[in-house]
C-alpha cells in the first residue's frame, strides 16, 4: 500500500508540473493535429478522382492516419530527455547503487508526466476521429481487438525502454538534443508515421515488421484494417517480446558501462 502511495505521489507531482506547461502542451498538440489534418487533406486531394492506392481505399487511408496517430500518442513518451537531464545534473547520483530502482522510479515518474499530454492527446485525437466519423472504418472483431490491445501494450513498454536506452546516451555526451531529434525522425519513418510503409518497396514492409518501431503505428493499424491476419499479429507479438528482452539486456549492458564512466567523472 505504502509503495503504491509513494508512486502515486511521484505521479501526481509530475502531473501538476506538467499542467503549468499549459501553453507548451496545447501549442505542441495543436501543431501535431494540424500536421495530421494537412496529411488527411492531401490524401483527400489525391483520392478526389476515386480509386485505390496500393490496396488502400480512401477510407482506409483516413483510418490509417487517424488510428495510427491515436495509437502513437498512447504509446509514446518523453523519457529520453528526462533521463539525460538526470544524468547531466547529477540527480542520478541518488540511484547509483542499483540500476533497476532508477529505471523503475523513472518509469513511474514518466507515467505521471505523460498523463497530461496523454489526456490532451487522446481526447483531441478522439475528437478528430469523431469529426471524420463518416470516413473512419469501425472494426469490432473481438479477437482482433484483443491482439490489438496486446500489441499496443507491448509497444508502450517497448517505447519506454527504447527512450530510456536513448536517454543513456547522455552518459557520453551532453549534446543530446540533436541526436534525439534525429532518432525520433528515423523512428517515425520506420513506424509508418509519415505515410504507410506499404507504398515503398516490400523490403521496407519486412523491415518494419522485424524492427520494434512499426508496432507503434503501422503494424497495429494493418491489423485493425484486416490487412494482416491474427496469425501474423501473433508472430508480431512474439517479435515484440523478443525486442523487449533484447532491449532490457542492452539497457543493462549500456547502463553498467555508463555508470562506470559516470562514477569515473565523479559528479
Amino acid at each position: 500500500m505504502g509503495v503504491i502511495k509513494k508512486h502515486l505521489t511521484i505521479t501526481k507531482i509530475a502531473w501538476q508540473r506538467a499542467l503549468t506547461y499549459r501553453f507548451t502542451v496545447l501549442a505542441h498538440r495543436l501543431g501535431e493535429l494540424g500536421e495530421m489534418l494537412v496529411l488527411i487533406l492531401m490524401w483527400a486531394a489525391i483520392y478526389s478522382g476515386g480509386g485505390v492506392i496500393k490496396g488502400y481505399s480512401y477510407r482506409e487511408m483516413i483510418t490509417y492516419i487517424l488510428l495510427g496517430n491515436l495509437i502513437n500518442v498512447v504509446v509514446r513518451n518523453w523519457l529520453s530527455s528526462v533521463v539525460s537531464r538526470d544524468i547531466a545534473d547529477g540527480t542520478l547520483s541518488q540511484f547509483l547503487v542499483k540500476p533497476m530502482p532508477y529505471l523503475r522510479y523513472i518509469l513511474f515518474r514518466e507515467v505521471g508526466r505523460i498523463s497530461v499530454a496523454f489526456a490532451f492527446s487522446v481526447v483531441s485525437s478522439l475528437l478528430v476521429i469523431f469529426f471524420f466519423t463518416r470516413y473512419f472504418i469501425i472494426n469490432t472483431a473481438p479477437l482482433m481487438l484483443a491482439a490489438l490491445a496486446a500489441i499496443i501494450l507491448l509497444a508502450f513498454v517497448t517505447e519506454l525502454l527504447l527512450s530510456f536506452l536513448v536517454g543513456l546516451i547522455a552518459f557520453w555526451t551532453t549534446e543530446v538534443d540533436g541526436i534525439y531529434a534525429t532518432i525520433d525522425r528515423l523512428k517515425k519513418f520506420f513506424a509508418g508515421g509519415y505515410f504507410p510503409i506499404s507504398l515503398l518497396p516490400p523490403v521496407f514492409v519486412k523491415a518494419s515488421f522485424l524492427l520494434p518501431f512499426g508496432y507503434s503505428f503501422f503494424v497495429p493499424v494493418q491489423l485493425y484494417l484486416g490487412k494482416i491476419g491474427i496469425e501474423t499479429a501473433a508472430l508480431g507479438i512474439l517479435i515484440q517480446l523478443f525486442w523487449l528482452a533484447l532491449l532490457y539486456g542492452i539497457i543493462q549492458l549500456v547502463w553498467n558501462r555508463g555508470i562506470k564512466k559516470y562514477e569515473g567523472v565523479g559528479i
Binding site: D177, A181, T182, D184
Partner: peptide
C-alpha cells in the same frame, strides 16, 4: 549537437 541537428 550542431551536426546532429543538421542531420535531423
Amino acid at each position: 549537437d550542431a551536426v546532429t541537428y543538421l542531420i535531423g
